[in-house]
Amino acid sequence: MRNISIAALAISTLALSACGSEVEEPVEQIIVAQPGEAASYATPDKTPAGDAPEQAAE
């Protein structure tokens, strides 16, 4: 018995590579603020970046 997981994955990737991928642009892009800029209506007490202890989902 032989496991062919790696080969199968590689071959499928090869096939995908051959087919190429489609570059998809945003259908809609709403720019509110740039990084480091506070949006005009954003509250000043923003959550520190990367600090999300209240991730209820987790």
């Binding site: 998809e24 945003p26 259908v27 809609e28 892009q29 709403i30 720019i31 509110v32 603020a33 740039q34 990084p35 949006a39 209506y41 954003a42 509250t43 007490d45 923003k46 959550t47 520190p48 970046a49 990367g50 600090d51 999300a52 209240e54 991730q55």
Partner: peptide, 24 residues
């Protein structure tokens, strides 16, 4: 758009993304 820290909102067709200054 009016919520804290929001920078961009994207409709990518296959998904929606909100970019902000923190994950929360």
């Amino acid at each position: 758009k009016n919520m804290p820290g929001v920078q961009q909102i994207l409709n990518m067709s296959s998904f929606i993304a909100v970019v902000a200054d923190g994950y929360w």
